[in-house]
Structure formats: structure tokens, C-alpha cells
Design a protein around this nucleic acid. Sequence first.
DNA 1: CGTCCCGCTTACGTCAACGTCAAGGCATAA
DNA 2: TTATGCCTTGACGTTGACGTAAGCGGGACG
Lengths: 160, 160
Amino acid sequence: MALELRRPERTFTIRQLCTEFKATPRALRFYEDKGLLTPARDGMNRVYSYKDRARLILILRGKRVGLSLQEIREILELYDEGDEAAHQNAHSLKKFREKIVVLERQREDIDGAIQELNQACERLEKHLSEKRPDLLPKAADYDQMLRARLDGHADLALAK
Amino acid sequence: MALELRRPERTFTIRQLCTEFKATPRALRFYEDKGLLTPARDGMNRVYSYKDRARLILILRGKRVGLSLQEIREILELYDEGDEAAHQNAHSLKKFREKIVVLERQREDIDGAIQELNQACERLEKHLSEKRPDLLPKAADYDQMLRARLDGHADLALAK
DNA sequence: CGTCCCGCTTACGTCAACGTCAAGGCATAA
DNA sequence: TTATGCCTTGACGTTGACGTAAGCGGGACG
């Protein structure tokens, strides 16, 4: 099935991409409005290519790390216009470097936040095990959590 | 000076905190509106304690990692009600664990985004060095960047 | 044949996180 | 005294990223 998806001539409907990546048709059309996607058309209907799908993956990940659609568009544009407008590109270069700095700090922040949440969890578990051990999560719940985590990564696995 | 800041009885005006953390008074009042901060008052004026300042640090970092003010409030609430409502805390525990999973994925996303931005930068630099080497950043600019980065971390150094 | 279900477009609504006035209080400086 | 400056509380405006509803066209199903 992963092989199916990888076949370059393969195309997708809007709904297929939406269900695959848990987006909405409205969102994809919005991205198109903003120039981040330009799917082909079959009559009126949008037809997304394998490349469009790859762009969508980049868009969604960009969003998750806090990039604006505007910034994401700049990155995407860089990918398909190998050339032209060297002046603008100098500007892009500066902005990208700045963004990298921001993201690196963001990663530090996330590490810190994870640490603190872990500490908070430990405190909570200790508190609960003393006062209300009945409310502590059971082995079954933990199992459930692991499965959820894997589900969350399913699209990433398909994406590479 | 760091010792000054650490003295627990030390208080802060709204503007002091704003300049220290590059926020605006409007933002701090907004956080108060939403229940994330509850500074004391001297007449009409807000008086922020050392603890308020610590909360603000958590708020700002929470924002940087993409938490909503709502979520940040939940975390903060957990910090000062060490007790009571064990049932609710069991719920908090679950939410925190989920949030940790989200953050871990987010860190992966950030690593990927940094990689891509770096690649994009390399391509841009190569492109520029061939066509418009005059537009390439100079050593002075790099110096400037490093200074900016250090400034950005000054508050963190004071904060810990 | 009607009626779902998709899909399309256009247009207005919404929500978070503030920004931006407006109108005024209190204090210090000229 | 007036002026300057920081603080206050509303109240309304803004921006980004969509949601939602209205209205139409086209296959598929019963």
C-alpha cells in the first residue's frame, strides 16, 4: 500500500488527502487560495498529484512548528522556482536563518517543558498513590496510550 | 543584580516585567483577564511578586512551544493547588501525559523543519555565490546575528 | 424520477491573542 | 499651575486560519 502511494502517477481527491492527514476540504482550498497548493483540475474538480501531496505534508509540518502560511509559501516557492529574483532570495536567506534560530530556541523550550511536565506527572502520581491509588492509570490504559501514539505517527511513516 | 532579582520580597511594576521579557502591558493585563496572573494591587496599580514573575516566565515559554493560554492556565493552576480534588488531578495527569506525547512529536517536527531550512539556506547561498556574490551576508552581519541570539537568551539566564 | 452525497464557489462568521484608541487618575518636573 | 508620563479600565479593531451556510452541478442508487 505504501508502494501504491509512492507511485508518481498516482493522484488523489481532496477527500482522500483530507482523511489521510485529518484536514478539511476547506483548509486545502484555503491553502490553494493562498498559493501554497495548485492542484490540477478535472473539469471543476481538484486533482492532487503525488507532488501536491508532498507539499501538503510540508505545509502541515510547517504549521505544527508554528510557521505562518505565508512563511511556508516562501519555503515552497523556493523549492520549485530554482531561479530568478536573486534579490528576493537574499532576503529569504536572512529570514530563514532567523527562523532557524527561533526554532532552535523553541526546541530548547520544548525540552524544558517536557521536563517540567514529567516532574509534574511524577508529583501527581506520588500524590495519587498516597491518597487515591484507585485513580492511578492501569496497565491497560498504558497500552491504549502506546497504540494512540503509533496511530499518530502512521501518516509520517507513509510520508517518507 | 541577579541576586537582587532572586530576593523573594522583591516586587515588580508592570513595565519592569514588560521590558525584561519584551512583552506589552496589554498582554499582561490580558493574561490577568484570563486568570493566568493575579498580581497584588497598590491602590489601582498592579504589583507583581517574584512568584508572579515566575509564572510569567512559564506563560511565555508555554506560548513559545505552542500551548494556548487555556492550556497554560491549567498547568499553572496545578502548580499552586498542590492538593484538593484528587479526581481532577487524575484527569490532569492524563492530559499532561498526552501533552508530553504531543511535545515529543513537535520536537521531531522542529528537527525536521530545521534540517529543511538549513538545506534551503545552503541552496540559496550556493545560488547567490554564483550569481550575486555581492548579496551574500558579510562577516559583520554574522556578528550581528550572534549578538541578537545572545540578547534573546538574556532573560533565560536571569530566569533560572 | 427523485434524492443523496461530493464537489465547487462565494460570502459571511468565528476564535484567539492581542493592538489600539478613549477617557481618566495620580505623581513628579518645570 | 500646567505639563509629562505612567498607570488604570473599558470598548472596539485586527489578523490569521479557517468554519459554516447558501446555492448550484453531477454521478450513483433505489
